[in-house]
Every structure is written in structure tokens, then in C-alpha cells.
Design a protein around this nucleic acid. Structure first.
Length: 956
RNA sequence: GCCGAAGUGGCGGAAUUGGCAGACGCGCCGGAUUCAAAAUCCGGUUCCCCUUGGGGAGUGUGGGUUCGAGUCCCACCUUCGGUACCA
């Protein structure tokens, strides 16, 4: 390794910048220092992280894997808000490296997605071209901040070497099923073996049953090939399904439930319609229980865990079958969480999409208002989700003319149709208990249906409709008696009765639904699957991966009423043979003509597993080697394993973080990873806001349409209307986005890093105020001046150590370390500033003190720290120097000042020995001149002494 | 509506376990230095009252627990997130 380090080449300051103090730390000097060390770090490969098995890997060091959610590189370039994610990560990485850990601190790019494709539609430029360009810009901008990432591990989700494995993981799901008995995913091959052996059988609907054949259950070996295929389809974890999807015409694609907010697309806010479509799904619901339960293992913000728990939405209740009256000889299944209120059920409500509605329309029983029903069903289909929601208070509905029989009382209950019942949840039908459910209550009032009170609240409640627990009343018949029972007991009693009489059972339900995983767009991973002429699908063999995206002549979405995937335009690519596509010959004749799947995967796919690839990004044999995976992500004593610290925005609380957990658990079940969870500790950084201007009607005016007319007074340029300065989330439309390049040009990257971390707590949303940046810049200037003569550029250090400075340094070392570990960078920086101020006013630092200061400063301001460190004669990076120790004895003061209170009010202070016992403290306080003066002759009732904290005297 | 988080000087914020409220920074005021300015250094800066030592009030509002509350409890107000008929 070269011993020549850049600091030996002295900086030649530009004359213009400083005639008097040519070596003052300012923008020019900062830039030259920063660029020089960034180049040196790159040349010397300083932050390359060896993997287990590599020659220079030290297996005795514990790991620390920290990463930020990778960015989507947009054409607009980096934004100051991105850095609230990557700077803290870098500080942590640099700190733990110095604390002797093997630190994995990688960076990559989330690069498939809509914006590049939209741009391609307008310009005809291939999305890959724009995306690659954006990545280069982002990389350059991020590197300008001196991130200590191992850039040799960088990749983008659009790299064929990466998405090859994204496709491979999808195939793992495609080739797996969920064994509920063992509560894990297993290869489909093992399911086939169980079926062939006769352990499992298949029912009339071709669903696989975990029981031998007989009693209406067929043996697998008696089924024909197509029937067997269909049965397996019912179990694959990645499966095709015709179901109602969220179609967004504007985006030209379907969206997952999670991507639809208030009936509009999460991205762009475009209207979304419900329509049936055959799509690839992920059976994430099989994991609902584990995704919920394992939240307990995670060191995540409580609010995020709660959001996931609510999204999963587990509820306990019962499924109840109500027999339909003639001419139907079947029953209506409902789900309820309140089986205890069964005596209060006075009517039924079904969703407009309920199959019973179709039956009624197909063969209407005599005397029912079939036209009214049809009109209502059609109307509710046309109503968008948004409309349905906006008037959720008022209920609409129509009577079917059909009745069911109450299983206990035998009474006839009317069956209504209403869109307040959702087909997607439970059975799309409910027993309505208007006495104890507010929605049912509103409906009953609307249509004048009977309301019966069956639960009396424990404490006096005067609510018209009591939805909580209580004691059952009016709940008895010859078959069952619930009166006087508490809700919990009544529930159990009803469920037992239902099960005993075969009209229902206890049931757990989830809000979580299967994950719609295909899109009709171009710029995403192709599915590694083909269809034969019968429409049967076949997975593509591993050796034929990746299935690369074909180029397209144009990216314009196909205008059509039917969603039409863009890839169908690539005819030559779509039409191929089984052999060319890579289907195993034992599955399909290699010459058989096949069509490739033309849907692509959604933007989430690549981000589901990128943390895994970081562990071993160039592996061509495996998505990650077992050795690398278990070292970087394996379980540890203090947690379930996974990434040690994952920092990212709270907006991903449900989507990305739930999907990723699901993929990880699937891979865990298949023995591909060793930890049960992907991210053991999660942290959300707050958003940055900046100044924006508000009209009197609270609408916001773009920053460049406002001028300042006086102190704290602004007007809208066009109209002269006074506007008020407020802080708002940075956004393009308000033109209040701060560009990091500008800040770097004015102060340097170290100042920018410091300022961003000094603003306030990492998790809080904070205002960016350019006025305040100068404070941390001055701090760096002062630190520089402690060590370097501003006129000559030579080192200037104290020969004699000052005791006060030495003690302050020990305290600062301790404080900064503690604060970094709890991600309190703002207070860590405050203590560094305090120390520099102390050193400045006490005659400066010795060589050895500067050495330690450079080390503890380096996580925050790595360039200036590296410069000082090398000026002291060190030749390796400060980033690999050990974190300095502090001497606990030195930190402790011998004499301390303690406040003395009388009746809780501070009246004096006494100097006492730090280790004085309670009695000594008490005497010292009472002996204090001012205290005895104030107390006079009054008797002393009590003296509270908290050593090191306070002495409080209570007179009688 | 429901769930959650947060309200502290002119501003960003600090106070880690109930123990000196306002660390640190910005801004502002004063001083040193300078022909002058910038930069730098030193001092002051929650509010009110006497101003000599001091006294009183004070962490969104109102109550409570405690020797002692920014911190714990109850009610309310405001702001910001999340969520949307899930039976």
C-alpha cells in the first residue's frame, strides 16, 4: 500500500477566498479536503467489506449490518430528504467499524417502476437508458457526502444478474404450498407425494384435503391430469386467479389492495375501478398468523407494528349457517365476531356481489321484486369505492324477498342486500344485530326493521346501541339459554352449541387478503412462466433464468377496454417453444409452442429481498451463499436475526415491510435463509420540511412566486396579496425542495452532514432553515483552528495538557458514543461543539488529544477528521482507528454543587464531596448560611436527600 | 368517527430513571479587535417586578398524585400522521 497520503500535498488556497487567513476552513478548503479524501478512499478501497471465506475476513469480530431503504433514482436527482436516511446510517456504520465490528453498509437502486416508463412513452427513450443515467447522478451525489458504503456491492434491481434471482424466488413460491399442519411452506413435490401415497385426498371441488380418500373425498390417483393440475393450483403459494381487481385506467395497470387509498391509486391519486381479471397472486394469507405473531420479536416502532397488525386484522368469532327457506335447500353462511348476540339477529344482509344474488336473478322465486334487486346491484357496482365511503353514514339496500330460519328461535328473518357488506371479507354476508352494531342499527332505522336488545352494559351506558361487552338478556329459548352470562362466556357457549349441532363453528378471520402480484406495465421483472395451447402454465427452469425483458418499439399503453399488458406487443418474444423458453422436458415437449406470460411484476418485487443480495451480490450460483447469509443475517442471542438496523420512511410501514417479511418467511420455510425475520431493528427517519408561503385561504404559493417586502413580510408577486410564511413538506410543485448540491457548494459536505443531523431528533419531522447552517460550519472552523494555523497552514498544538480539557474530552467520548448508539445525533454533535468551545477557551489541544477528537468527530464529519488525522502523521484511515476509551474515574468530579430546596423551591446551593453520604449532605445543607437564615427557628419536619441530585428540606 | 404521536424562549431544539427547565445552535443586544467593515474572540439573552443581594410566574388548557411533575394520572384544546362500513 502506498504510504503517500493526500495531505502531504499541501493545499494551495485560492487567493480570492482569503487574503488574510489563507488556511481558514471555508467552502473552498472544505471542497478540496473532501474531494481528495473521497478519491483516496476509493483508490485504497478503504471501505470494502470482506465476506466470510475471503482472505482478509476476521471471523472473530461480530457483525453489524446497517442499511437504509434504497432510493428510487428519479430524473430530478437527489433531494435533501434522501440524506436523512443515508447520513445516520453512515454515522452508525463508521462508529461500529471503530468499535471493532465487521460492518456491512451497502447501497443499491430500486430501479423498476412507473416514472421511467411514463417518460419513455413521452420521449421514446428506453427506460433503461433514463434509469441508468439517473442512477449515475444519484451515485455521484451520494458519494459527494462521503458515505462509507462498500460500493463494490452495489447493484440495481434492473440488473439481469439481480432480477434473475427475483424471478427464481418467485418460482420458489410457485413451486411451494403451505402445510397448515406443520405451519410452513413446503415444495409442491412433497404435496404430490402425500397425495400419491393416499395420505391426502381431493374433494368434489378439487380442493386438497388433509385426510385419506373416502366419504366424498377422491383419491389423487383416480383423477385425470387436468384435475390434478387444478387441485395443485388451489395450493400453490404463487397462483393464477380470476378475481375482482383494482384496475387503474390512468396508470394502465391493476393495483394491490394496499396501493389503493380512498378508491384512488396510492401513486398519483388516479381513480380505480373494481373489475374481474385473471392475475398472479401470492398466498400471503397463509402467513397471516405468523406475520402477526412474529411482530413481537421485532425492535420496531410500536406504531408500525400496530399498523401491520391492523392491516392483518385478525379477529376471532364464528361462522354460522342460516338455513334458507324454500325453495333453496342450502344455507347462508355468515361470519360474526359476536356469536353471543345471536338472539339479537333480526335480519340478514348480503353483499351485492354475493352468489345468492346471481341465483335469485337466474331463477327468481315467485313474488320477489327482481327488477328492484337488479337495479340496486347494478347501481352499487357503478358506484366507485370513493362514493361508497363518502356517505357511509347513510345506508342503502333492498329486500330480496327471501328469508332464512334462525337456528335457535326458528323465526323467519328477512335477507337484504346492501353495499355496506363487503364481498371480500368473511362470507360476504352478515347476521344483522341492530341492537349492538352501529352499522346494523343505522340500517334497521333506515328500513324500519326490528331492533332487539340482548346485551346489557356492565356499567351504566345510555348509548342507544351498545357495541361493547356486557351481560346477556333476552337470550333464551328451549335449545339454549344465555341470560346472565358475560359476553366472553356467552360466545363460548354459542360456539359450542353451533359445533354440536353442525350449524357453525368457531373461526378466526383476517382482513389481510392475498397479494395481487401482476401488472400490465413494461418496466418490471417478467414472470418466468409460459402457457401451452391449453392455457396450462409451466415454470421456467433455473438454468434459463433470467427471462430478460424484450425491447419494445413503443411504450404507449394499448388502448382497450380490456387491460392489455404492454409485453404482448413483443410478439417474437411472446411466441416461443417450451424448449427455447426453458421448460423442463419432462413437463412439456420442447417443441411445443408456448406463449410467455406478458404481465410483469410490481415495483415491490425487487425490494423484497435486496438486503439478502447485499450479503453476496456477485454470486452466480446462488441468490446468496449460505455462509454469507448466516453470518450477516443469522439469528443472534439478542434477536431473531436479520438486518441489525434498517432505516427508512414510515410510509412503507405496511407495504414494503409486510411484503418483505412475507418473502423472507417463505424462504425461511424452504431452508433458504436462517432467520425468521428480515429486519430486526427498524427506525423511521422524520421528513424534512422547508419554508412555503400560504395565502389567506390557506392555499400554498410556490416559493418563486413570492417576494419579501419587509421583515417577516411576504407578498405574492403577481397580485401583491400578503402571504404568510409556513413550513411545509418539500415538494416540486411548491418549489421548496432543497438541493444538496447547493448546500455542499456553499459550505461543504461535512457541514451539510452535521447540519442535517443537528436539526433535531432523527425521528421527528423538522424544518430546514438555511439561516441555521452557519452554526455547525462555525463549529468546524473552530475545530480546524484548534489544530491548524490559519495563516501558515501548519499544525499548532499545545505542549502541555490542560486538566479541564482532558476531563471534558473523556466526558465527550462517553457522551458521543452513548448518543450514537441511541441514534441521538443532535445531542452528540452538541457535546462535540461544547468540547471544542472548552478546548478553545482553555489553551487548545495536545497532539494526543487532537488524535482522539479526530476519531470521535469522524463519524459525523469524516473528511475534516480524516484530514486532521493524517496531519498528525497517521497513514491509515481514521475510519478504521479504534474508538477511544474514556476513563470513568477522570469523568467524576470530586466536588459537586448540589441544589438545596425548602418545600420544593430551590433556595441555595452547596459544594459537597461527590461521594458524601446522606447524613453529610443533610448537615451540609442545614449548615448553609442562606438556608439557616431562611429557616430561622422553624422546626424541621423532614429532609429528603437524593445523593447527587437534590436536598429538600420540609419545615414543620 | 376510530387509532397513534406531539405541543417547552423570537426560531430549531435539550432535559436518557419523577430531582437545578431552557444544554447546544441560530437570531438579537453589548464589548474587544479594526481607519472601517467582514471575520474572529469575550459577555448577555424565558417573562414580569424591585433592580443591591433578590422576589414572583413559567413547559398547550383545567384538575389530580407527590417533599418535588416538562416527565405520572384524569378531562379538554390544537397540530401532524395512520385508517375508513372488515361484521
Amino acid at each position: 500500500m502506498s504510504s503517500s497520503t493526500p495531505s502531504e500535498q499541501q493545499d494551495q488556497p485560492k487567493a480570492a477566498s482569503a487574503s488574510k487567513a489563507p488556511f481558514r476552513y471555508g467552502a473552498t478548503l472544505a471542497e478540496s479536503i473532501e474531494l481528495r479524501w473521497q478519491e483516496w478512499w476509493r483508490e485504497q478501497d478503504v471501505f470494502r467489506t470482506p465476506n466470510p471465506g475471503d482472505e482478509d475476513f476476521d471471523e472473530d469480530k461480530p457483525r453489524y449490518f446497517c442499511m437504509g431503504m434504497f432510493p428510487y433514482p428519479s430524473g430530478a436527482g437527489l433531494h435533501i430528504g434522501h440524506l436523512t436516511n443515508y447520513i445516520p446510517n453512515d454515522i452508525i456504520a463508521r462508529y461500529y467499524r471503530m468499535k471493532g465490528r465487521n460492518v456491512l453498509h451497502p447501497m443499491g437502486w430500486d430501479a423498476f417502476g412507473l416514472p421511467a416508463e411514463q417518460y419513455a412513452i413521452q420521449t421514446g427513450v428506453h427506460p433503461e437508458e433514463t434509469t441508468r443515467k439517473a442512477i449515475d447522478t444519484f451515485r455521484k451525489q451520494l458519494q459527494r457526502f462521503g458515505l462509507s458504503c462498500d460500493w463494490s456491492r452495489e447493484f440495481a434491481t434492473i440488473d439481469p444478474d439481480y432480477y434473475r434471482w427475483t424471478q427464481w424466488i418467485w418460482l420458489q413460491a410457485y413451486r411451494s404450498w403451505y402445510d397448515h399442519a406443520e405451519d410452513r411452506a413446503r415444495p409442491v413435490q412433497e404435496l404430490v407425494e402425500l397425495l400419491e401415497r393416499g395420505d391426502y385426498s381431493v374433494n368434489a371441488d378439487l380442493e386438497i384435503i388433509e385426510a385419506p380418500a373416502g366419504d366424498g373425498l377422491n383419491s389423487w390417483n383416480d383423477l385425470d391430469h387436468d384435475q390434478q393440475r387444478t387441485a395443485i393450483e388451489h395450493r400453490r403459494l404463487a397462483y393464477l386467479s380470476e378475481q375482482t381487481v383494482n384496475w387503474c385506467p390512468k396508470l394502465g395497470t391493476v393495483l394491490a389492495n394496499e396501493e389503493v387509498i380512498d378508491g384512488r391509486s396510492e401513486r398519483g391519486g388516479h381513480p380505480v375501478h373494481r373489475r374481474p381479471l385473471r392475475q398472479w397472486m401470492y398466498r400471503i394469507t397463509s402467513y397471516a398468523d405468523r406475520l402477526l405473531k412474529d411482530l413481537d420479536l421485532l425492535d420496531w416502532p410500536e406504531s408500525t407494528k400496530r399498523q401491520q397488525a391492523e392491516w392483518i386484522g385478525r379477529s376471532e368469532g364464528a361462522e354460522i349457517h342460516f338455513r334458507l327457506e324454500d325453495p333453496f335447500d342450502e344455507s347462508l353462511a355468515v361470519y360474526t365476531t359476536r356469536p353471543d348476540t345471536i338472539f339479537g339477529a333480526t335480519f340478514m344482509v348480503i353483499a351485492p356481489e354475493h352468489p345468492l344474488v346471481d341465483q335469485l336473478v337466474a331463477s327468481p322465486p315467485e313474488g320477489i321484486d327482481i327488477e328492484g334487486i337488479q337495479a340496486y346491484v347494478t347501481a352499487s357496482k357503478d358506484r366507485s369505492d370513493l362514493d361508497r365511503r363518502s356517505d357511509s353514514g347513510t345506508k342503502t339496500g333492498v329486500f330480496t324477498g327471501v328469508h332464512v330460519l334462525h337456528p335457535l328461535t326458528g323465526r323467519k328473518l328477512q335477507v337484504w342486500i346492501s353495499d355496506y357488506v363487503l364481498m371480500e371479507y368473511g362470507h360476504g354476508a352478515i347476521m344483522s344485530v341492530p341492537g349492538h352494531d352501529e352499522r346494523d342499527h343505522a340500517f334497521a332505522l333506515q328500513f324500519d326493521l326490528p331492533i332487539v336488545e340482548v346485551v346489557r352494559p356492565m356499567a351504566g351506558s345510555d348509548a342507544e346501541c351498545h357495541a361493547g361487552d356486557g351481560i346477556n338478556i333476552n337470550s333464551a329459548c328451549e335449545l339454549l339459554e344465555l341470560d346472565g352470562l358475560h359476553t366472553a362466556e356467552a360466545k363460548a357457549r354459542v360456539i359450542a352449541w353451533l359445533e354440536e349441532h353442525g350449524v357453525g363453528r368457531g373461526k378466526v378471520n383476517f382482513k389481510l387478503r392475498d397479494w395481487l402480484f401482476s401488472r400490465q406495465r413494461y418496466w418490471g421483472e417478467p414472470f418466468p412462466v409460459v402457457f401451452d395451447q391449453q392455457g396450462h402454465h409451466y415454470g421456467i427452469g433455473n438454468e434459463s433464468l433470467p427471462v430478460e425483458l424484450p425491447p419494445l418499439a413503443d411504450y404507449e399503453p394499448v388502448e382497450s377496454n380490456e387491460p392489455s399488458p404492454l409485453l404482448s406487443k413483443a410478439v417474437d418474444w411472446v411466441e416461443t417453444t417450451a424448449g427455447d423458453a426453458g421448460v423442463a422436458p419432462n413437463e412439456l415437449d420442447p417443441d411445443a409452442p408456448v406463449r410467455r406470460e406478458v404481465n410483469t411484476m410490481p415495483g415491490w418485487a425487487g425490494s423484497c429481498w435486496y438486503y439478502l443480495r447485499y450479503c453476496d451480490p456477485r454470486n452466480e450460483e446462488r441468490f446468496v451463499s449460505a455462509q454469507a447469509e448466516s453470518y450477516w443475517l443469522g439469528p443472534r442471542e439478542d434477536g431473531p436475526g436479520g438486518v441489525d438496523l434498517y432505516i427508512g420512511g414510515a410510509e412503507h410501514a405496511v407495504l414494503h415491510l409486510l411484503y418483505s417479511r412475507f418473502w423472507h418467511k417463505l424462504m425461511f420455510d424452504l431452508g433458504l435463509v436462517t432467520s425468521a425475520e428480515p429486519f430486526s431493528k427498524l427506525f423511521h427517519q422524520g421528513i424534512l420540511t422547508s419554508f412555503a408561503y400560504q395565502r389567506p385561504d390557506t392555499t400554498l404559493v410556490p416559493v418563486d412566486e413570492v417576494e419579501e417586502v419587509g421583515e417577516d413580510q411576504w407578498v405574492e408577486s403577481a397580485t401583491g396579496t400578503p402571504v404568510q410564511r409556513v413550513t411545509a413538506k418539500m415538494s416540486k410543485s411548491l418549489k421548496n425542495v432543497v438541493n444538496p448540491d447547493d448546500v455542499v457548494a456553499e459550505y461543504g459536505a461535512d457541514t451539510c452532514r452535521l447540519y442535517e443531523m443537528y436539526l433535531g431528533p432523527l425521528e421527528a419531522s423538522k424544518p430546514w432553515n438555511p439561516r441555521d447552517i452557519i452554526g455547525v460550519h462555525r463549529f468546524l472552523q473552530r475545530t480546524w483552528r484548534l489544530a491548524v494555523d490559519e495563516d501558515t497552514g501548519s499544525l499548532q498544538l499545545a505542549d502541555e495538557m490542560d486538566e479541564t480539557v482532558e476531563q471534558a474530552l473523556h466526558r465527550t467520548i462517553l457522551k458521543v458514543g452513548e448518543d450514537i448508539e441511541r441514534l441521538a445525533f443532535n445531542t452528540a454533535i452538541a457535546s462535540l461543539i461544547e468540547f471544542t468551545n472548552t478546548a478553545t477557551s482553555h489553551g487548545g489541544l495536545t497532539r494526543e488529544q487532537l488524535d482522539r477528537l479526530a476519531r470521535i468527530l469522524s463519524p459525523f464529519a469524516p473528511h475534516i477528521a480524516e484530514e486532521l488525522w493524517h496531519r498528525l502523521g497517521n497513514e491509515t484511515t481514521v475510519g478504521h482507528a479504534p474508538w477511544p476509551n474514556h476513563d470513568a474515574d477522570l469523568i467524576r468530579d470530586e466536588l459537586i454543587e448540589m441544589p438545596v430546596q425548602i418545600k420544593g423551591r430551590i433556595r441555595s446551593k452547596v459544594m459537597v464531596s461527590a461521594d458524601a453520604d446522606e447524613e453529610t449532605l443533610r448537615e451540609a445543607a442545614l449548615a448553609d448560611e442562606r438556608i439557616s437564615e431562611l429557616l430561622g427557628d422553624s422546626e424541621i419536619r423532614k429532609v429528603i436527600v437524593v445523593p447527587g441530585r437534590i436536598i429538600n428540606i420540609i419545615p414543620g
